[in-house]
């Protein structure tokens, strides 16, 4: 269309037809090229194929789906949906106490303070953290013959009752190391960007971290060291995204021991 050359009215229909044709063809051609490249050329080089290009294989990242892509195995059945959180909201701590006295007290103590350093303190842990671990023991995502036997005998509602019961107990006092090694404080507060290590405190904080994350202060140091070592070796694998396995795998055994001492009693 040359600039400003107004067509006579009799030409209008022909001019309009040309515009409609070329505008639609142009827009259509661009879309076709984009679809061919986006859905076929690129996807044929990746792992996802056409379903990946459509978003079918990584859409709606459930913990299950995430786990399968991130770590190759299912880490947990627990998803923090409104239903799961509602279960905890409606749980009954008194019913939980009754179960705790019968089943949990011999190792974890009646008030949630463990009787030996191999067992974690449950008092004051977030209900979400306790609930997730119980569910994972029952489903086998966290492996422990002893805990599996205990947890498999519980319904989801009973696990929730136990979780809110222990959450309400007074946590063990955290014995703070007066002079922690500077490198360990650095790991806790800032991580180590050179290794791609996030700071521990980003999630494990007394102020609370992501849902289901336990604070670490006041746990037995031996228990913490044992768990970090298990994550590093891949023996424990109920962490979403494989995050703890990745982090612990990058720590040296000495760092694991020092971190356990830093947080633990």
């Amino acid at each position: 269309m040359s600039n400003g050359e107004s067509p006579r009215p009799s030409d209008q229909d022909a001019v309009n037809r040309r515009w409609r044709l070329w505008a639609s063809t142009g827009a259509g051609a661009i879309v076709v090229v984009a679809i061919v490249i986006g859905f076929f050329v690129i996807s044929s080089r990746g792992e996802g194929g056409v379903t990946g290009a459509l978003g079918l294989d990584h859409v709606h990242e459930t913990p299950e789906a995430v786990a399968q892509t991130a770590a190759g195995a299912l880490p947990t059945d627990v998803a923090w949906t409104a239903a799961t959180l509602g279960l905890l909201e409606d749980a009954d701590p008194e019913a939980g106490r009754a179960i705790a006295v019968q089943t949990c007290a011999s190792c974890h103590g009646e008030a949630g303070i463990a009787v030996a350093a191999a067992f974690p303190n449950l008092a004051g842990q977030p209900a979400t953290a306790i609930f997730k671990q119980l569910s994972d023991y029952a489903s086998g995502h966290r492996v422990s013959p002893m805990m599996a036997a205990m947890a498999q005998g519980l319904t989801a509602a009973q696990m929730a009752d136990l979780a809110v019961h222990f959450a309400a107990e007074t946590p063990a006092e955290s014995i703070v190391d007066a002079n922690p090694p500077a490198a360990i404080v650095q790991l806790v507060v800032n991580g180590d960007p050179a290794r791609g290590l996030p700071p521990c405190s980003a999630c494990h904080s007394a102020r609370g971290g992501p849902v289901g994350t336990p604070p670490l202060g006041g746990q037995p140091a031996a228990y913490l060291e044992q768990q970090l070592t298990a994550f590093a070796a891949g023996e424990r694998g109920n962490d979403i995204y494989g995050l703890m396995r990745a982090v612990a795998g990058m720590l040296t055994p000495a760092e694991i021991a020092q971190l356990a001492a830093y947080y633990g009693n």
Partner: peptide, 15 residues
């Protein structure tokens, strides 16, 4: 974002 596939992202990038 994880909720969309690469194809639509590419298509909209081209547009």
């Amino acid at each position: 974002d994880p909720e969309h596939g690469s194809g639509f992202k590419f298509l909209q990038m081209m547009l």
